[in-house]
């Protein structure tokens, strides 16, 4: 590793440096991905722009819509009181990332920009229809998270652009979320498959008004299982309907075989975990079919 080190003290300064160095520069947040990639020689930026002195980026704003600043850590998400209720899958996703040492520094913004298909909080954010805001030399733009993730390690972020915030709305009444992860052990593990779900029921809690089902580690990016979502919306959520969603999700995911698991096993996990996550949402809302 050999690089020039910069410590911008404000967002505007960080963006100006980002614009100046373009592809030769990298923003450093928690460093749990970037420093390791640099040590392995996978990336070799000539300029490292540490963001830790930029004030305000570590804030979680929860007035109405929720905004996660780029430097909000997984530990902060895990401990945020606003995420104890219907948004609880954020806590469930954040708390299975590495150990305390990782979660104390690893940021959700960094996790999004790193764009691992096996990321754990990203599927939860996708169930919340989250957007990401990027600030660059051409100004600010806000994109749906789903479109921002373009491939393994690839995003729509332009060279020099800084991801400043992740935003999502609070959920309507009769909503709940759930996150499940399958790994070879419980801690310090990259997901073999992870699944997040969000359900919103009608006021009588009989029919599904909206469903989101997202899958990690079974496609080049974290993906939404749209056919499975459509199979739920407008219907009473019986166990049969939830199992059907699991079968559809297993059909529409695109897993590969790798060191962690075979593609076939990953599909079996999706078929099992999707209904399980949906049942958990249904139980958390209470009532229902």
């Amino acid at each position: 590793m050999s690089f020039e080190y910069h410590e911008p003290a404000a967002v505007a300064e960080a963006v100006a440096l980002g614009a100046r160095f373009g592809e030769a520069g990298r923003f450093l947040a928690g460093g749990t991905d970037l420093i390791i990639q640099m040590r392995r020689g996978k990336v070799a930026p000539r300029h490292v722009l540490s963001l830790h002195r930029v004030p305000g980026l570590d804030r979680i704003e929860a007035n109405g819509a929720i905004t996660l600043g780029a430097l909000v850590t997984h530990r902060a998400v895990e401990r945020c009181a606003d995420f104890q209720g219907p948004l609880g899958a954020l806590v469930e996703g954040a708390r299975v990332v590495g150990g305390h040492q990782i979660r104390n520094v690893a940021t959700v913004g960094g996790n999004v920009v790193n764009a691992s298909p096996a990321a754990d909080v990203v599927p939860v954010l996708l169930t919340l229809d989250a957007t990401v805001t990027c600030l660059g030399p051409d100004g600010e733009r806000t994109l749906p998270l789903e479109g921002f993730l373009t491939g393994p390690g690839q995003t729509a972020r332009r060279p020099g652009e800084l991801l400043t915030a992740i935003r999502f709305e609070r959920l309507p009444p009769a909503s709940a979320t759930a996150f499940l992860k399958a790994g070879r052990r419980r801690a310090m593990e990259i997901s073999v498959v992870c699944v997040a779900a969000r359900l919103t029921l009608d006021p009588a809690r009989e029919r599904c008004l909206a469903a989101r089902i997202t899958l990690g580690a079974v496609a080049p990016t974290t993906m939404r299982a749209r056919a499975a979502e459509r199979a739920l919306e407008g219907r009473p959520l019986t166990d049969d309907v939830l199992r059907e969603a699991g079968r559809l999700a297993a059909g529409e995911c695109r897993p590969i075989s790798d060191v962690r698991a075979s593609a076939r096993y990953r599909r079996l996990l999706v078929e099992t975990l999707v209904p399980r996550a949906l049942r958990r949402c249904r139980e958390r809302i209470g009532g229902g079919a």
């Binding site: 080190y5 460093g31 040492q101």
Partner: peptide, 15 residues
């Protein structure tokens, strides 16, 4: 680091 457990192997001294 400021009271929180961190891995010193991936933290730049400058940070």
């Amino acid at each position: 680091l400021d009271g929180r457990a961190v891995n010193a192997c991936i933290l730049l001294a400058a940070q």
